[in-house]
Design a protein around this nucleic acid. Structure first.
Lengths: 150, 150
DNA sequence: TTTAATTTGTTGCAAATGCAACAAACAAAG
DNA sequence: CTTTGTTTGTTGCATTTGCAACAAATTAAA
């Protein structure tokens, strides 16, 4: 059995660690960049969708978003038709930081794919997407309290 | 530019989240399984090597290992030739838990690779290893305080 | 050998993380 | 319409996480 999960864990921790260090320059604390990019790319998105995209606990998201609001990177707006949800939008400050995050992320992708041919890069992306889709089913299930048999 | 980094982040967080939930059954708290499997597979390994394998902060490792010692999963032994390092070994209790962790991890690998042909699985592993090697160079550099240009 | 640099490991904060337990709005079922 | 279930979001609490700043042992250099 190929231990792809360990490789993925190493890569993810390394890249996340790097990003967190690099984004301190913009006064973004640990993990915040994850939320901010996605809100910039999907203005009006709600927290629960963000949670599904990022794969993080709901309570963690609540607090990360609260802090992004306090530090004026995003704002929460009520929906006229649904009092339960809060739509998230980047502020001017948030929009200004976005290109830097984007650029850094692209650089990391570039580093990750160094030495890859066009074909290989495509293949990697394709395979990873499939893995992600496979894995997120289990995540949703386990998060809801279901048990996996193994 | 293919955003493989996002896919990898999603997969890693989802799988880590699942593992942490599943290993509570064995009284392992968040992240501890990462250290324990590697110590079981590399008895006598030292903390710094573990840090490089897992890609985590040194101080985080110190505390995770302290807790594994307290809960009797591992023990630290001094090296006769080097007073600085502490060699890590699984206890009986640690050895007993190992197969369950291993099994769970294998199950997750299996889930991740569902629908993959033998060839595709091989390809995925190969590509991931290359990505990991690319990324760990930057991680080591940035962790030492160097800046990346992007 | 003495000095300087590197490796390895630990603590003190301050902060993020996530499981529970909850509440409120909404949707579905009766 | 009322009841029941689901979705969305928040807090309390305990824990993990990681940057700094440090100390001690080891290795390299002078």
């Amino acid at each position: 059995m190929k231990e792809i999960l360990r490789e993925i864990g190493m890569i993810a921790r390394a890249l996340d660690s790097i990003s967190n260090i690099e984004f301190k320059e913009f006064d973004l604390t640990k993990g915040q960049y994850l939320y901010l990019v996605r809100i910039c790319e999907n203005p009006g998105i709600i927290q629960e969708q963000l949670v599904d995209m990022i794969k993080v606990d709901r309570s963690t998201a609540t607090r990360a978003l609260q802090k992004l609001v306090i530090n004026d990177f995003i704002e929460k707006k009520e929906d006229p038709y649904n009092k339960k949800i809060k739509r998230l939008f980047p502020t001017e400050k948030g929009k200004k930081v976005y290109p830097f995050i984007k650029r850094e992320n692209e650089h990391s992708d570039l580093v990750a794919l160094k030495g890859f041919s066009e074909k290989e890069a495509e293949a990697a992306f394709d395979l990873l997407q499939r893995i992600r889709k496979n894995v997120e089913k289990d995540w949703e299930s386990v998060k809801k309290g279901n048990k996996r048999d193994y």
